[in-house]
Amino acid sequence: MKEFNIEIEIDENGNIIADTRGFHGKVCEQELDDLLEGIDGESEDKKKPEYFAKEQIVTKTNIKNKL
């Protein structure tokens, strides 16, 4: 099972640094937006290489032919 984490650091000046682990693509942005909703102030985004990686989706399908 894949693990997803969000690490939040608040420094002595009240600045928030948030980092995600295990997320790929825009889902990490959405999760951070939901988590930090309502917090005012300036923000700066730094996207990691994982943001640009495509999530691999593996599906398994069983098809049986009826003869």
Rank of each mutant, 00 (worst) to 15 (best):
V27H: 07
T20P: 05
V58H: 01
T59K: 09
Y51P: 12
Q56V: 04
K66N: 06
L35Q: 03
I6W: 03
E37R: 07
N5P: 08
K48Y: 04
C28R: 02
N65H: 05
K66P: 07
N15H: 12
V27W: 05
I16P: 09
R21E: 14
F23K: 02
A53Y: 11
D19Y: 14
E42F: 10
L35K: 04
L32Y: 11
T20N: 02
D34P: 04
E7T: 15
K2A: 11
D45Y: 05
I8G: 05
E12N: 12
D45E: 11
K64G: 02
F23V: 10
E55R: 08
A53K: 07
A18F: 14
E9G: 10
K64P: 00
D11F: 15
H24N: 12
D45S: 08
D45Q: 03
P49R: 14
T59L: 15
N13H: 14
C28I: 09
I8Y: 13
E29T: 01
F4A: 04
A53V: 01
N62S: 06
I17R: 13
E29C: 02
I6E: 08
K64M: 07
E31M: 04
G14C: 07
I57P: 00
Y51K: 05
N62W: 10
E44F: 07
V27S: 00
V58E: 15
N15I: 15
K54I: 04
A18I: 01
D40T: 15
C28S: 08
L32Q: 01
E55F: 01
E12I: 12
N13G: 12
E44H: 03
H24F: 07
D34E: 00
D19C: 14
D11Q: 13
A53S: 03
L35R: 02
Q56I: 11
M1I: 14
D33C: 00
E42D: 12
E3F: 04
T61R: 04
V27I: 10
D19V: 15
T61W: 05
E55C: 00
